[in-house]
Design a protein around this nucleic acid. Structure first.
Lengths: 226, 226
DNA sequence: CCAACACTTCATTCTATACTTAACTGTAAA
DNA sequence: TTTACAGTTAAGTATAGAATGAAGTGTTGG
């Protein structure tokens, strides 16, 4: 056990790896190159360090085309890193406390046929919190509650399931670097939101605006005060 | 902030210093020579490392004649070290379970100032079963019954509550992967158990042995036949 | 197709810093 | 006193492992 502790400690102890972990603390996934820039080092070097962190199961990777997105393998890893950061002697600690306020949802976009961007991630998070969908890592599952919830919204679940396309799956978001929902179900949800005039698509852009009605309904259904 | 984090991380990252911190986890103060033996290195070397840890305010020193006693400067430092130990990947941990050398330490041990390991989890479970403490997930609460129970044991609840430190909180155990109690209350409980000679700390280890008297009393108070 | 890109692998170089050797201060017993 | 002990300081050395250079693989988009 002591040996393993020393292993973990020395893994975290290297300045470049410490910077990687620190950067990842904001919860987003980062590409290798981005982390290289953050840590001010070469791609080869960051590759070596990321490998070590993945092998120790501190980080996990997801390939997307020629990019690799890295993030913490488990939540408790981020917590332990934070605990370490809290060991910093009291004097410096003061200023950090001010910018921890939750960032408002302001950047909204759709991705092909479903919600993406900050709102896509926020909606997904909300449905997971409400146990409407279950996050199983590699895929999302619709719970029994969830079936009722979508049916209440007027979405025909069984109809969607008969389509040839994927019903529900996680999709890594370009802007947020977090998972949001993709597939027939979230497409139907976007459709619904547009039809009910909760949101409107901007011309010639993927940007989306939330209507006054939408603000109320999104708060009601997703428990997301905007 | 990031700079300071890197500093702390690299401080903990050195194997010799990691061993020092690991050794100090049992809550006792150690002399420089004892730590040198534990870390299997020279007095000069340990002196250098201890200096760095003291300067970073991770440890504090107390001189006593020609000896110097080192211990954690604050409790949260021990907790952060424990949190790091919890990051060890699960499958490696499996092998460790079969490794008989560590078993006694995992079974019965104290973590800084409170009971941990199997006995820590068992005691916690028992108190929850008996509704002496209430498990609220993120925190533990002492019930009305519980106040009486601890008072009967001769523990001064209101005195403990006035201390600046946390009174009672869950702490994840690295060996059991379950919650046990940490804070002023369980620290007082460990104190009581040592004073009454229910349990004894082993020399040079965090292992704990249960005395014959302890077996009876633990069965009586915690309904735990051992 | 090709060129640019994201990332990896491996052999080599480099360097930070842990450790050593040696000489010191202060404390405690004998 | 004297001897042994606990710990420190300073200067020099050694080496683990981080960084680099060169040469890959696989992906994307014009």
């Amino acid at each position: 056990m002591e040996e393993h502790f020393k292993q973990i400690a020395s893994l975290i102890g290297d300045p470049t790896r410490a910077t990687i972990l620190w950067t990842l603390l904001d919860g987003k996934a980062f590409t290798a190159t981005e982390l290289a820039i953050a840590a001010d080092t070469s791609p080869q070097n960051i590759s070596m360090h990321l490998n070590k962190l993945v092998q120790a199961q501190l980080l996990c990777v997801e390939s997307q085309g020629r990019h690799k997105y890295y993030k913490f393998a488990r939540k408790d890893i981020a917590y332990a890193i934070e605990a370490l950061a809290n060991l910093i002697p009291v004097e410096i600690d003061q200023k950090a406390k001010t910018n921890t306020i939750e960032v408002p949802v302001k950047y909204c976009r759709s991705c092909y046929d479903h919600l993406a961007g900050k709102i896509g991630v926020a909606v997904t998070d909300s449905l997971i919190d409400q146990k409407i969908i279950i996050d199983q890592g590699k895929n999302f599952e619709l719970s029994a509650n969830g079936q009722a919830w979508f049916t209440d919204l007027g979405i025909n679940i069984s109809g969607l399931k008969q389509l040839r396309r994927s019903f529900l799956r996680p999709c890594l978001d370009w802007s947020e670097r977090r998972h949001h929902m993709a597939g027939a179900l979230p497409a139907a949800l976007l459709d619904k939101m547009l039809n009910e005039d909760w949101i409107r698509k901007m011309q010639n852009s993927r940007a989306i605006v939330i209507t006054a009605k939408g603000q109320q309904m999104i708060d009601k259904h997703f428990k997301l005060p905007l």
